[in-house]
Simulated assay, not measured.
Amino acid sequence: MTPHYTESSLRQPRTPHIRMPPFTGKEGWETRRALFEAIANRYGWDEEERLNQLLPRLEGAAAKFVFSQLFPHVLNHSHELLKEIDSRFRAIKTSRTFAAKFSRRSQRSGETL
């Protein structure tokens, strides 16, 4: 017996339920983006599926930024959307940020330089 396919089942990508926590803007974006990209590439998500998976997972400050500050056309292009989220939420590491971290650090007992 051959499986029966409907027209709609052929058009819809068959993505298993992916458990990814929401992105609120408080946690590190770099790791979250790498996870998203790895899963998207693994399952061969197209532009539409990437948006379908990303947009509902934005909450808190991230959702406020995306849905109230970005132009509507950006919400229809995953590459542009990810670029905007990168600009807003990625950690910028410069010599000044490293110097600031170093100045707040104290040497622990028994720790060498």
Rank of each mutant, 00 (worst) to 15 (best):
H77A: 03
G25D: 10
L81M: 05
A99C: 06
R50G: 02
T15G: 00
L54D: 04
T2F: 03
P22K: 13
R32N: 10
R105T: 15
S95H: 07
G25C: 11
T15Y: 05
V66Q: 01
R108D: 07
F67P: 01
Y43H: 14
L75Y: 02
A99P: 02
P22W: 04
Q69M: 04
R19P: 00
A62I: 05
P72Y: 04
H4A: 04
R50L: 06
P13G: 08
E30K: 15
P13E: 09
A100L: 13
K83A: 12
K83L: 10
I18L: 13
Q107P: 01
P16E: 11
P56M: 12
P3Y: 01
R57L: 15
N52I: 02
P22E: 11
I92N: 12
A99K: 13
F23N: 03
Y5Q: 01
G44V: 04
R33Y: 12
V74G: 01
M20H: 05
L51H: 04
K101C: 04
D86T: 14
H17S: 08
S95I: 08
T97A: 11
S8P: 01
H73R: 03
T97P: 05
P13F: 07
R33H: 13
Y43P: 02
L75V: 03
R50T: 08
Q12P: 01
I92R: 15
S9A: 13
F98P: 00
N76I: 00
F65I: 10
S87V: 04
R33N: 11
N76A: 01
R32H: 15
L54Q: 06
P72C: 02
L54V: 15
R108F: 07
